Simulated scan of single mutants.
Amino acid sequence: MRWTSILAIYILFWSLSVFISLPFGVRTHEEAGAELVRGQAESAPHSYDWRKWAIRTTVIATILFGLYYANYVYGWVTPADFDYTGTE
């Protein structure tokens, strides 16, 4: 596999991991004990630490990509494993 393909697939895994990691660790103003600003939604997060989110996302993406690449190299699961028609 070429390095450009590896990079593109890793970026796809990272993008997927963004949506996996976003809902975790979010606290609203009510949960944090802070006052709402006028016009602010009650569900808005109290604070946002992008470094923590980026690290968490990168770790998840690296683990998922590592599993994908190991499967690519060692062939643990192949398309033939999903052939339920009975033809070979």
Rank of each mutant, 00 (worst) to 15 (best):
W76Q: 01
G33Y: 02
Y72I: 07
H46V: 06
R27S: 14
H29N: 11
W50G: 11
Y74W: 13
Y74R: 11
Y69S: 06
G66I: 02
L64M: 02
F24Y: 15
S43L: 05
A61F: 00
V77A: 06
S21W: 15
Y74P: 01
V77Q: 07
G75P: 04
Y74L: 13
D49R: 08
L22F: 13
R51W: 11
W50Y: 15
Y48P: 01
Y72G: 05
G33L: 02
I20Q: 06
Y72C: 07
Y72Q: 10
G39H: 11
V59K: 03
Y69L: 05
Y68H: 11
E35A: 04
A61D: 00
Y72T: 12
T57G: 01
N71G: 01
S43Q: 09
E31T: 01
T62C: 01
V37R: 11
A70I: 08
Y48A: 06
A54P: 08
S47L: 05
I20T: 10
Y72V: 14
R56H: 08
K52L: 13
W50A: 12
Y72N: 12
G33S: 03
A61M: 00
V59A: 04
A70Y: 03
H46T: 01
S43C: 06
P23K: 10
F24V: 15
R27H: 12
G66W: 00
L67C: 09
Y74N: 14
L67M: 14
H46F: 14
S43I: 07
V73K: 07
F24T: 13
A44V: 09
V26F: 10
P45M: 05
A34N: 10
R56S: 10
A54V: 11
L64R: 01
V26Y: 10
F65N: 03
